Amino acid sequence: MATPDSVLEWLVESDPALRWQVERDLLHAPQHVWEDTRSRIASEGFGARLLALQGPDGQWAGGSYFPRDFDFQGPEAAEGAGQPWTATTWTLNTLRDWGLDPAALNGTAELLAVNSRWDYEGLPYWGGEVDCCINAYTLAIGAWLGADVAGIAQWFLKHRMDDGGWNCEWVNGSTRSSFHSTLNALRGLLYYETARGSNDELREARKAGEEYLLQRHLLRRLTTGEIVGWWAASFAYPFRWRYDVLRALDHFRSAALEDGLPPDGRLGEAVAVVRAARRQDGRWLQGKVLPGRVWFDVDVPEGEPSRWLTFYASRVLEWWDSEAHSEGGPRRTSLAFPRRHTVEGLFHNRARRG
C-alpha cells in the first residue's frame, strides 16, 4: 500500500519527534536528512518542552510513576478518572519512543538511582517493582539511558505465565496472560535486546510471548475465537498501556526486522482491521484517548485525522504489503477460529458503542 503524496506532505508538516520517523520509514530519505531532523527533538517542539519540565532531582512531577502530589484517595483516583501521565516513567518512555538522543539526558540515570523510588513499597527505581508493564517500561528506559537493568530482564523470565505471556495481576493470583501486559512486556524485552544484546533465555521468552499473541491472531480468545475486547480495534495516540492491534503490529514489524524474518501469516486478520480503519483520503482518525493529567497535548481530539496514527498504520501496511509481494512472502501459518465476530462486525460494534 503506497501512502498518497498528499498524506506524506501532511505528515512531514509535523513535530521533529514524528517528522524524522516519517522521513526515515515512509519517505526513505538519506540518513543525514532524518538524523538532522532527529537531532532537533531536544531543542524544538514536544521534546524540548518535556525536557524543560525535568526537575533538579532528575524526575518529572516529582514521582516515579505517579506525581508527587497525586492523592490516591481523591477525585483524580476515582474510577473512570484515568491516571496522570506526567511522572518520570511515562515522560521518559515518551521521549524514548520519540527517538530522543539519550545524551540530552546525561546524568539522569544517576539522579534517578539516588532520588526516585517506586510508589510500591519505596523500591529503588532501577530495581523495578511488581507490575510487569511498569517493569517493561523501566527495562527499555534503562537500556536507553545506560542504567543497569539486567535484574529486571531476569525478572521477566521468573514471572512468565505457563501460557507464554505475562499479566500484571499475577500479584493478585492471576494465572493467565493478558493481551495488554504481554504486549508491553514484549516491547520492553525487544528494546532491551536491540540495545544491549540478548541471550537464549530472553529471546526464548520473547518468542513465547509473541506466540501467545499469534495463536490468537492478535484479536481473539483462544478458547472461543471471539474478539477479545472492543479495545483491540480502538486506536488512539498516545498509546499508553492499552493493547490494540496497531500497537501489536508495530511490535511484530520491529521484531521481524530484528530477527530477519518475514511477517507471520497469522498477523493477516489484524492487518485487515488496521486497513479497514483507513479513510478514503489515506488518513486514520483519532480514537478515545485514555483520560488523565498530561503536560500538554501531542495529538488531535477524538474524531480528527491523527498524524501519529496515520504514520504508524501506514508504516505497518507498507511493511506488510512489501513483504507480501517479496519472494517467500508472509509465513503461511494459520489457526482456524469460529467466525463469531468478523472484522466488519467488530467495526460495526465499535461505531455503535460510540
Rank of each mutant, 00 (worst) to 15 (best):
V22E: 07
R24E: 12
Q31H: 11
E35S: 04
S39M: 09
S39Q: 11
I41T: 05
E44S: 06
G45M: 05
L50T: 03
G55H: 06
S64G: 13
P67C: 03
G82N: 00
T86L: 00
T88Q: 06
N93C: 11
T94E: 06
L105N: 02
V114L: 14
V114I: 14
S116Q: 04
E121P: 01
Y137E: 07
A153M: 06
Q154I: 10
W170T: 12
S174V: 14
S181N: 09
T182F: 15
T182A: 12
Y192T: 00
A195S: 13
S198T: 15
D200L: 14
E201M: 11
R216K: 07
R220D: 00
G225E: 02
W230L: 13
A233M: 09
F239S: 05
R240K: 13
W241H: 07
R242Y: 12
Y243E: 04
V245A: 06
H251N: 09
R253L: 15
R253A: 03
R253T: 03
S254I: 06
A256E: 14
E258G: 08
G260Q: 10
L261I: 15
D264T: 02
D264G: 03
G265L: 05
G268L: 10
V271N: 01
V271R: 00
R278V: 08
R279W: 10
R279H: 15
R279V: 00
Q280P: 13
L285A: 02
P291A: 06
V294I: 15
W295Q: 05
P305H: 02
W308C: 00
T310W: 01
Y312D: 10
Y312C: 12
A313E: 11
D321A: 11
H325M: 14
G328V: 07
G329K: 06
R332Y: 04
V343Q: 05
E344Y: 09
H348Q: 15
N349H: 14
N349F: 14
A351G: 14
